[in-house]
Amino acid sequence: MPMRNRSRLFLLTFVVALFMGMLCWPANAVQAKPNADEPKAIYKVDTDKKLVALTFDISWGNKIPEPVLKILKDKQVTKATFFLSGPWTVRHPEIAKQIKNMGFEIGNHGNLHKDFSNYPDAWIRQQVGLSEKAIKQVTNVKTTLIRTPNGDFNPRVIKCLNSMGYTVIQWNTDSLDWKNPGVSAIANRVLTRAVPGDIILMHASDSSKQIPQALPQIIDGLRAKGYQFVTVSELLAQAKVKTEVQ
């Protein structure tokens, strides 16, 4: 058989074999179904009610937290969730107590500000245990919500934290206030992205220099859109109620 004909025959055989192989390929090998049992973090809650949770991470400084708290008081915002790091809580116990005494919800933001996914479960348990102990000693709050440092996690990390009794809280709307992009940029980002059931990420650390100016605009703007403020736990309860009704 001439070389040209051999090449054509080989090519035809290869194409037929490839086609038959695709027909016999298992459907789940092409597109795996998502695992419903895989541990998950909470970004937002599915609800028709105009409810949002304002959340503030604090891991450094004492210049920004107090103005943020004053704004919330002046604007009569009584529901918000603060995620506190252990070392910050120890260094600034009076501010941590003020957050508790104002009735705001307190969550855990870890101890060392390092990505949990880079460390084994034993390290994660130790770090979360240290911050949990510090928050409990200062505020008498046993935390059950956690926002991991840098928002870093993977399924293993979530599974480890769930086994400690924690619900991992992320965010759906990120203010990017830590980048200090400008007061209007921070406020507009939140106001244009917020949706019912949203968890909104902000910071009350000293690195977020513009949040005291942006926060009043965010509060007023969300209220003008008909939103009410709740804690993260209250938002999660809405999802539970909806599930039970269904």
Rank of each mutant, 00 (worst) to 15 (best):
G107V: 00
V138T: 11
G110A: 03
M102T: 02
P2N: 13
G182Y: 13
K40R: 14
A239G: 15
R6G: 13
L51T: 09
I200K: 04
D198R: 07
V245M: 10
T89I: 07
P39E: 09
A122W: 09
L161K: 00
P212R: 13
Q238S: 14
N140I: 04
G221C: 07
K73H: 15
N111E: 10
V45R: 02
P87A: 11
R147H: 05
A187S: 05
L236D: 00
Q76D: 15
H113A: 05
G129P: 09
R4G: 09
T144E: 07
E132S: 14
L69Q: 08
K73N: 08
L11C: 14
I71H: 03
D206T: 08
R147Y: 03
K33I: 13
F83E: 00
Q98H: 06
K136Y: 10
S7C: 03
P212Y: 14
T231P: 08
L235C: 05
N188W: 11
F153D: 01
D46N: 14
R189K: 09
Y43G: 07
T173A: 12
A224Q: 15
F56N: 00
F229K: 04
W60Q: 09
N35T: 06
I71C: 11
F82Q: 09
V183H: 07
H109I: 05
A53E: 04
A36C: 11
E244K: 12
A185Q: 14
V195R: 15
E38H: 14
I158N: 02
K79F: 00
F229V: 03
K142R: 15
H113V: 04
E244L: 08
W171V: 03
G21C: 02
P65I: 02
C160T: 15
K49Q: 12
I146W: 01
Y43C: 11
W25R: 08
K73L: 11
F83C: 04
R4K: 10
Q137R: 07
A27L: 15
V230I: 06
P65S: 10
K63R: 15
G226I: 04
Q127C: 06
R91W: 11
L18R: 04
S208I: 06
I42D: 02
V232S: 00
I135K: 00
K49V: 12
N162D: 15
D220T: 14
Q31L: 14
V16D: 09
D121M: 11
Q246V: 13
Y227G: 06
L23S: 05
I146Q: 00
L69H: 09
T143D: 00
P39R: 06
G165I: 07
I219H: 08
F82D: 05
A185S: 11
V168S: 03
R193D: 14
S208G: 08
S208D: 10
P212W: 04
R147A: 04
K142E: 14
A187V: 13
Q228W: 08
N118A: 12
R189Y: 03
G110Q: 01
L9F: 07
P2T: 14
Q126C: 02
